[in-house]
Amino acid sequence: MEYILETDNLTKRYGNINAVDHVSIHVKRGEIYGLIGRNGAGKTTFFKMLAGLSKPTAGQFSIFGEPPENTPKLRDRIGVLIESPGLFYTMSAINNMKIQALSLGMNDDEYLHELLNDVGLGGMEKMKVKKLSMGMRQRLGIAMSLVGRPDILLLDEPINGLDPQGIVEIRELIERLSKERNITILISSHILEELSKIATRYGIIHNGQLIDEFTHQELLKRCSERIEIRPSDPTKACTVLEQMGITEYKVVDQSVIQIFERLTDSGDIVLELAKNNIKTLSIAVKNEALEDYFLSITGGAKK
């Protein structure tokens, strides 16, 4: 499997605090990897290490299979938007683009105009950044990160502070970049609901640790409607369920069984368990929202 970006126990320590604690992720080419975590979870620090802004205390990472220090030229192939876009407010949008381009040794005005068009800022090239709305600045920041024709884009909280319309615009832009330019995107947010609309793979970071990693399909499954049953003997209950032909189930905390199929057959399930001398201590049909799911796992991990 070709991983475009891999981290191996990447760690950043500030004094006694592990801002990022042994995080290992694997990102395939073309994926949109969503890193989800509360404010202060370690997302920005993690991104900063990948962008070369911060030196890891321990661990390592590779881009295109190579450690970045061995191949500094590869850095050009990473576009970065960390926290807020770094823009010169008294200069025009196109001049900001030009400054970014010159730093990469590029001098192609036509391409810069094309990029501004792509992010929906066509016709606003000469407008000063201070006169742009927050959403426009965010899009300009993304356009600047695209100047070097990157293969990987690191977007740290790109929808932070945006109104609903702005969020939709950025989401559509990210989807378009992934599809049309085949850019691998790492995007962080504390809003799982938004990320769930675009990401293909997720990592949940909490207190600097990666506590879960799953695909989009797995996320949908975890958040889908299900029967939650608490039997007196979970091991025996699993056997009974399988005898009934139920295979899509999961045991949580060694006491609760989540069943993802035959959701209207809860009565039959209870009856079958009773026939096998298994008491049903509780039963409920649950449908968890994405945010609830996120809170349940980060809240559970909270020390």
């Binding site: 802004l53 850095r75 970014q100 990469l104």
Partner: peptide, 17 residues
């Protein structure tokens, strides 16, 4: 200080070893 102040240095600092 201009690059540090507006955060532009974050856009480019990673491009050199």
């Amino acid at each position: 200080n201009a690059e540090q102040k507006c955060g532009f240095d974050k856009n480019i600092i990673g491009i050199t070893k």
